[in-house]
Design a binder for these strands. Structure first.
Lengths: 179, 179
DNA sequence: TTAAACTTTCAGAAAATACTGAAACCTCAG
DNA sequence: CTGAGGTTTCAGTATTTTCTGAAAGTTTAA
């Protein structure tokens, strides 16, 4: 591994925990992303100086994020791993999985809590707040899933448009009104 | 604390680490959000059964996320804490801070790495990948900051529009062409 | 100035998390 | 079958993170 590649891989490790997994898993993913060829478990464990068992657990974790792909070479029983999908898909998946882990459980707790009538003033206030949070999270997750259903191409146009969308929406409103 | 409130606070604790801080900090923030009145450090430590020192550290952490506000009561030297801003602002801030912690360092590493010429084929491939990632992250962060500059109201319209934006953009394109 | 009432800090203890490596497990060619 | 070549599991260990509580620091009323 050259210095430049190593610095990238180590950085992925340091960021790993912030992105939702741990250091080693981050390194593993970084390594797979910048390696042209798929890597075997042993190659990964040697490149990163970690145990074979750890690689196995890491791969499992990455699979739960739908971020790696298993491949086989002819005449070779080993499994070879490579990143699943394009950089773009990778981003979408991380987003999606994080939503599942970070937002969905909260939404369901809030839904449950909002079913009961508040028993006193304290709970009354709490419910108002929970309701606000619930509404916000619903709006955001709904929007996110709509965005995800758009083609990468459309999404790109939209993002490049930036705050300009606002103007486009204004135009739409005017058109609707004048009809 | 009633059961319902406690379940919310404990949930915030469990989610805490997924949202970027730790259990106690999560609980503290949950508690502050659903409490009508600002709370003193001692009240927090009693409500959550944690040490006074831990509260101090937690508040510091929440302040670094710009999520709490300090208040004072007349004739009282204690500090009282309450959530800073509306639920909406809270979401914006968490987003913003996470971007700073999770994306910005990566962008700067990638920028640095992309300045050097690749020394061999391996690095050549690595750079292509890093370039892709860099471009994607740039587009997304740029877009995110544009969105943040929009008024909550406009943003709400936009989000409610959902995948419908795509149609609106198509209409705009047609209008431009016909001119 | 002083001291009471508070907040912050931080070394060490406790708890949580991640890693290793050996054993168990799978799979398939012979 | 069987054993070679591979993967997974998991108990125990190492590392990292978090929490405590006592000491140090700060502020202000008198």
């Amino acid at each position: 591994m050259t210095d430049k590649i190593e610095s990238f891989v180590m950085h992925c490790g340091e960021m790993g925990s912030r992105w939702g997994f741990n250091r080693t898993v981050g390194q593993m993913y970084g390594l797979l992303v910048i390696s042209k060829e798929p890597l075997s478990a042993v190659q990964i464990s040697e490149a990163l100086n970690i145990s074979r068992g750890n690689v196995s657990m890491g791969i499992k974790e990455l699979q739960s994020w739908r971020l790696v792909q298993v491949q086989h070479k002819p005449k070779d029983r080993k499994e070879y791993y490579s990143p699943a999908g394009s950089i773009w898909e990778m981003a979408i998946r991380v987003f999606e999985e994080r939503r599942k882990r970070e937002v969905d459980p909260t939404l369901s707790l809030l839904r449950d809590n909002l079913l009961n009538e508040p028993a006193n003033e304290e709970e009354q206030y709490a419910q108002v707040k929970m309701h606000e949070i619930h509404e916000l999270l619903e709006t955001i997750t709904h929007w996110a899933s709509e965005l995800q259903s758009m083609s990468p191409d459309k999404l790109n146009t939209l993002m490049k448009l930036g705050a300009g969308v606002s103007k486009v929406i204004d135009i739409k409103d005017k058109l609707l009104k004048s009809n």
